[in-house]
Design a protein around this nucleic acid. Sequence first.
DNA 1: GTCTATACCTGGATAGAC
DNA 2: GTCTATCCAGGTATAGAC
Lengths: 189, 189
Amino acid sequence: MKKETRKQEIVRIAAKLFKSKGYSAVTMRDLATAMGIKAASLYNHIDSKQAILQDIIIDIAEDFTSGMQTIIVGNTNSIERLEQIIQLHVRIAVDSADNLAALNSDWMHLENKLEYYLKLRQDYENNFRKIIETGILNREIASVDPDVLMFSMLSTLRSLYLWIPKKGDVKLDELSYSLSQILISGINI
Amino acid sequence: MKKETRKQEIVRIAAKLFKSKGYSAVTMRDLATAMGIKAASLYNHIDSKQAILQDIIIDIAEDFTSGMQTIIVGNTNSIERLEQIIQLHVRIAVDSADNLAALNSDWMHLENKLEYYLKLRQDYENNFRKIIETGILNREIASVDPDVLMFSMLSTLRSLYLWIPKKGDVKLDELSYSLSQILISGINI
DNA sequence: GTCTATACCTGGATAGAC
DNA sequence: GTCTATCCAGGTATAGAC
């Protein structure tokens, strides 16, 4: 693997700080201190605080978009697709917990890229809803309110980053399995 | 019902602003503008920006605490208790969506009251987990990972405030029912 | 209860030396 | 690539008049 550039290091540390206090509460001086340098030095590597946020969020948002594309072009039924969505979220949450936190909590502080982000999110949710509706039509999924189901699944999946660190070294497969069991099969005996 | 005091009005408007941009990004000047007055005038009614946040969050946190108390002293089985937890979250989300947003997103900006808030949250989660564990032991709830189940339910319930406004005039009972169906019964046919 | 004026501090960002 | 020094806009909060 390639060595991390100084810029990538700054973005990585910034994501970590944004996760703990939120974008607005993190100062460039905080970030500089965490890097062991002075605030002015940051600007040799990055253009602005805003540009860091864009780097973090757009990167992850596009990861979700391409993941969803892969799912909907596959030759799979609706339940399988939901399982693949779960796996997608688990993978990204494990690999990029800090970035995911910024996407979830600080997207509204995007300036130029806000519209683009909102479009990616809208498209993602439309694809997700379509999978549910198709599943209900084909009688693969119980006849529930599609919006409530999507909301419920997305809430859980979007919050994974909050919770994964606490589980120690998570086994991806086991977590995906537990989630599929609970989200899809329910908890009734 | 009693007429809203000027202080309560400030806190209510503040919660609305905190919901849209987060505590740190909302300035006292923003709040004053939204109230139609100057920033200095706010201080005739409130002590500080921090005090507003405490008002908002602690109020809701104690509402959850007392709601959970009522549930665990009742003579009910585990599934019924989970249904009551769902109803509790739906009620609070409908009544106090903006306050709930601050509790979810800005609790880390509490200063003096942070420790107290964390204790309330810890106690709440312990009670929740206990209900699940008892349910599994008594074979009322399927044998799933209790932490994953609690996390999944709480993620959905804690995010309700994000989503309820979009559904227009939500019928509480219907929403509680849909959620119980999905969270408890699952979606398999 | 609200205003104007203002104190004081901290924010993001730049210039220019090393 | 990092530093010191600095700019200036904007943050919370107070004093005192009306």
